[in-house]
């Protein structure tokens, strides 16, 4: 129950950002439309697929642990962690490309754009940045869980920590599912 409540607070944390997004989308609809075309839908789609699949593997690892298949569970957790890393690498190249073409907070090229575009990219960096931070935290949690499964302290009799870790990972996933259409698809 504590973990669910905690996830709830995380959702509200992002909820604040979604409110800001909604307000500015309402006040600057055209600029948001225009700016969204700048984003690479392909990279975004790939990242969405990666995260969704990683949610599947982490969910499967719980079942694997429940059935006592330790090796299989470790493999699934390992895959989840690898996919999380792949997501970050993708994100890194995406952000890097934006920086190259002069889209980052305070960049002279960006400041020359209409205010709605500045806001769009301000939100883009803050929201995907905060999400990436959550991916990193989620990876740390998964590494800890991985180690605990390997040592056997998480096993078929006691897997609350694994469940909590997986829940957190699902949260990271679900936030992305909302970020993806809002930034990449609406244009």
């Amino acid at each position: 129950m504590g973990m669910w409540l905690f996830l709830f607070t995380e959702l509200i944390l992002f909820g604040g950002l979604f409110i800001v997004y909604a307000v500015y989308r309402y006040t600057h609809p055209d600029a948001f439309h225009l700016a969204a075309a700048e984003l690479n839908t392909f990279v975004g789609t790939v990242n969405t697929l990666i995260l969704l699949t990683s949610s599947l593997t982490v969910a499967m690892s719980i079942t694997a642990v429940q059935e006592g298949k330790k090796g299989f569970a470790l493999a699934l957790l390992g895959m989840t962690i690898m996919m999380g890393l792949a997501f970050l690498v993708n994100k890194y190249f995406e952000w890097g490309h934006k920086f190259e073409v002069g889209i980052y907070p305070g960049a002279p090229e960006l400041l020359a754009q209409p205010q709605g575009v500045i806001l769009y990219f301000g939100l883009y960096f803050v929201m995907t940045g905060l999400h990436a931070l959550h991916v990193i935290i989620g990876l740390a949690v998964l590494l800890y869980v991985f180690e605990a499964v390997r040592r056997g302290s998480i096993n078929a009799g006691s897997y609350v920590r694994l469940e909590s870790g997986a829940l957190y990972w699902h949260l990271v996933d679900i936030i992305w599912i909302f970020l993806f259409p809002l930034f990449y698809l609406l244009h």
Binding site: V20, P105, G106, L119
Partner: peptide, 17 residues
Amino acid sequence: MFGVGIFDPALGGDPVL
């Protein structure tokens, strides 16, 4: 830190928000 402009009216942000 970065001047993203979300609340800064000079960059289009809204202080009332």
